[in-house]
């Protein structure tokens, strides 16, 4: 569904921070993206949410070759991708509920009352029941993170990208959020989660995309069957 071949990436005129990246994400797959701080996890995700052009190589999203496609073809692809940014990137002038509703409103959803109910339901599920009308600036780091996750998943995206989505929450909430990702993955959402949390990767028994020195290595799931819930097509 998503295919990268010999992809390179650089910022401006700097040297490449990603070199010769090749991988494929099957529909409904679940991967962790790991690597030391500064290894380029967020940068690879930028390529995956179509925020940055690769400096070389081929990228294909939902069978659209984005290297040769026109710029006008990209918004439609982006609407199929949900992103939890490392820095959350919430809209400060909107309430929590409005932030969650926004992607759907932009996608042309007109039944706003129903959408609002769905958004509240989702926010309750991530433990923000009391924060519907709160502005992002009044939320704690973990609360912002959960809000960002709710916004990313509201539209049931085909591809979900999350950058350190459990970095700011306690282990119990981390479990709960991972459970949400797994549930979404089960209904077909292709998922990539960037993380530092090796114990979580081990626990989840999912394949790992590991970045090191600008190169990507695929480490298959350990297959210990302790948790065979993810990555099934």
């Amino acid at each position: 569904m998503i295919r990268f071949e010999n992809v390179g990436m650089r910022y401006g005129m700097d040297s490449e921070i990603l070199k010769d990246i090749s991988f494929e994400l099957e529909r409904g797959s679940f991967h962790f993206l790991t690597g030391a701080s500064g290894a380029g996890k967020s940068s690879l995700l930028k390529l995956l949410y179509l925020a940055h052009r690769p400096s070389r190589g081929l990228t294909s999203f939902f069978d659209v070759n984005t290297v040769i496609s026109t710029r006008a073809a990209l918004p439609k692809l982006r609407r199929r991708i949900g992103v939890v940014f490392q820095e959350f990137r919430l809209l400060e002038h909107l309430t929590a509920v409005e932030n969650v509703m926004l992607p759907m409103v932009l996608a042309g959803e007109v039944k706003e009352e129903r959408l609002k109910e769905q958004s509240k339901e989702l926010l309750s599920w991530v433990g923000l029941k009391d924060k519907f009308e709160a502005r992002p600036s009044t939320l704690s780091g973990g609360e912002k993170q959960r809000l960002a996750i709710a916004r990313a998943v509201i539209g049931r995206p085909d591809l979900l990208l999350a950058d350190e989505p459990t970095g700011n929450v306690d282990p119990e909430m981390a479990q709960r959020l991972m459970h949400l990702f797994v549930e979404l993955n089960k209904i077909g959402t292709t998922t990539v989660i960037a993380t530092h949390d090796i114990s979580m990767v081990k626990h989840m028994n999912a394949p790992e995309l590991r970045l090191k020195n600008g190169e990507l290595e695929l480490i298959p799931a350990a297959g210990n069957a302790a948790n065979p819930t993810v990555g099934e097509v």
Partner: peptide, 11 residues
């Protein structure tokens, strides 16, 4: 920032 976010959401 807001414009970039909604751009990335596919606006």
């Amino acid at each position: 920032e807001n414009i970039e976010i909604v751009h990335l959401m596919g606006a």
